[in-house]
């Protein structure tokens, strides 16, 4: 485990300053500063409806920023280009979606995006290793993605994201549909993946034990 609050000796990956989010008249959070260093697992703590998901979406720039700035490795989004930004600051939604076809076809599809041309590609053995770590065998790749259970869909979405090697992974309730054993396996896999490069994760969870267990640091959302 990493030492608790901020690992200042580690390289700074993401810095957000003075972010604000308002929904209609309702101010969710404001003057929010956030720094993420390599290896950190930042748990977002806030009651439902406090805007945890919206913060993750804001970091991935899926919604326009209402105030403030974000930098990844010292560079603003415009200098990366938005598709590139999102493949480096990758958001995993609470409600994973798959398109028609097999699990493998779904895992391959992000490699076909313009953004990723000439940047490596699909590596089957890497995925099957991860599947093994999650207690699944390679036949999972041949499943019809539209018939997956909620938990299986969540695994698909996780693997689809991990294989792209983002710098910052934004996880919105990543294990909400998983059983206890698989949840443990996912956490172990994430820790191993985070350790393999200068990477960090921000996550939300309704399970306070998971936050205790998995977060290296927590952030409370407040107005």
């Amino acid at each position: 485990m990493l030492p608790s609050p901020p690992a200042l000796d580690r390289p700074l990956l993401l810095r957000a300053e003075q972010l604000k989010r308002q929904l209609g008249d309702r101010l969710l959070w404001s003057q929010l500063d956030l720094e993420l260093r390599a290896g950190e697992r930042l748990g977002l703590v806030a009651p439902s409806g406090a805007g945890k998901t919206l913060l993750l979406r804001a970091l991935a720039l899926l919604d326009p920023l209402q105030a403030g700035t974000i930098h990844l490795q010292g560079r603003p989004p415009a200098s990366w280009g938005l598709p590139r930004w999102r493949s480096l600051v990758l958001y995993l939604t609470q409600r994973p979606v798959a398109h028609g076809g097999t699990v493998e076809a779904n895992l391959r599809s992000p490699w076909s995006f313009q953004e990723r041309r000439g940047r490596g590609g699909w590596r089957r053995e890497r995925i099957t290793d991860w599947l093994a770590a999650l207690g699944r065998d390679p036949s999972f790749l041949a499943y019809d993605a539209e018939r997956l259970s909620g938990g299986e869909l969540q695994l698909l979405a996780l693997l689809r994201a991990l294989q792209l090697d983002p710098i910052v992974l934004l996880l919105d309730e990543p294990t909400a549909s998983l059983d206890g054993a698989t949840t443990g396996a996912v956490e172990a896999l994430l820790i191993a993946w985070l350790g393999a490069g200068p990477r960090a994760a921000v996550f939300t969870s309704h399970d306070s034990e998971q936050i205790q267990r998995f977060a290296s640091r927590t952030l409370e959302l407040a107005r």
Binding site: L62, P83, R86, P110, F113
Partner: peptide, 9 residues
């Protein structure tokens, strides 16, 4: 949005 989040234009 899933596609966008994965880096799609």
């Amino acid at each position: 949005e899933t596609a966008l989040a994965l880096g799609a234009t």
